[in-house]
């Protein structure tokens, strides 16, 4: 086990940031913490990287206790905070060099590990970090977090504010790092990224709603789910919400994801209802649930 979290509690005043959190991450696994802002992801990261003390409970990272073995953990983990946290007035190369030095290593020594990522920003190595684009900043931050060949890598919302192409590239890089036997704990508010993890934990309001593989989480979705389309999205949502048998109604791209309270749902009946409410171009079709659907279902009050 690379990360073991056991019944962790943490509160800020009245707010329970983490409420009885337990999970385990196997060595070499890519584990995703999925949840909206304020779910407690950053607090959890900070506890695991020894930056905060838990109120209760214990956790081990790479075999070391997060409270007692502070110095050992700090030698063996790589951490990329949610906010871009490199020196903006230093160049790309100077930043990387600095982090190599403070971890007692050199760029050359671990170049093979960061090569795939670093070659993409190497042409700009004399540019100041503050002048990089969002995607390049993330690549540099990842390179800096990796330069000392950590056993466990903590990435707190690494793709927030990054363009879709860079996001995709970033996840491909994580997959390759995994092959080099680095355990990765990553958090993201993007549900589509969750499907790329080996295991995910869905988090909300400091609680873990469910932990499983992305496939299993989707498989466990309890109801048939329908995507509904019509000419007027807003009117469609309002009308569906007024339908007496509706269970859940969520906009999902150009469609609305709809579930019914009854097991013997009849799409013809819904169609008639919608037509009666001045909707046209109506399209109802059963669809496969996504992680987002699962999350919304679990997070339902």
């Amino acid at each position: 086990m690379s990360i073991q979290v056991h019944e962790i509690y943490k509160s800020y005043g009245q707010v329970n940031a983490l409420d009885n959190i337990s999970f385990e991450v196997k060595s070499g696994e890519l584990f995703g913490l999925i949840g909206p802002d304020g779910a407690g992801k950053t607090t959890l990261f900070r506890i695991l990287t020894t930056l905060l003390l838990p109120d209760r409970g214990n956790a081990r990272v790479a075999g070391y206790d997060v409270v007692r073995d502070l110095n050992a953990i700090r030698r063996h983990v790589g951490y990329m905070p949610g906010r871009f946290s490199l020196y903006q007035d230093l160049t790309v190369e100077e930043n990387l060099e600095f982090f190599a030095t403070i971890f007692g290593t050199t760029i050359a020594e671990n170049y093979d590990l960061i090569k795939d990522i670093y070659v993409q920003i190497e042409p700009f190595k004399d540019r100041r970090a503050g002048k990089l684009s969002g995607g390049m900043k993330q690549k540099l931050a990842l390179s800096c977090a990796l330069i000392h060949r950590p056993k466990v890598l903590f990435l707190d919302e690494p793709t927030t504010g990054v363009d879709p192409v860079s996001r995709k590239e970033f996840w491909e890089m994580l997959k390759r790092l995994q092959e080099k036997d680095i355990t990765i704990l990553v958090s993201t508010p993007y549900m589509d990224e969750a499907a790329l993890c080996d295991q995910i934990a869905l988090m909300q309001d400091g609680k873990i709603l469910e932990i499983d593989t992305p496939e299993a989480i989707v498989r466990h979705y309890p109801k048939p789910i329908y995507k509904v389309g019509a000419h007027d999205m807003y009117l469609l949502i309002e009308t569906l919400k007024a339908y007496p048998h509706r269970h859940s109604v969520y906009p999902f791209g150009e469609y609305v994801h709809y579930t019914d309270t009854r097991m013997d749902f009849d799409s013809g009946e819904l169609q008639t209802f919608l037509e009666a409410h001045n909707l046209s171009e109506i399209h109802i079709e059963e669809t496969a649930p996504t992680i987002e659907d699962t999350f919304m279902e679990l997070a339902k009050p």
Partner: peptide, 13 residues
């Protein structure tokens, strides 16, 4: 303020 202290703390320094 720039968040770099967070990284310095999580380092062997």
């Amino acid at each position: 303020e720039q968040g770099t202290m967070e990284i310095l703390l999580v380092s062997p320094l």
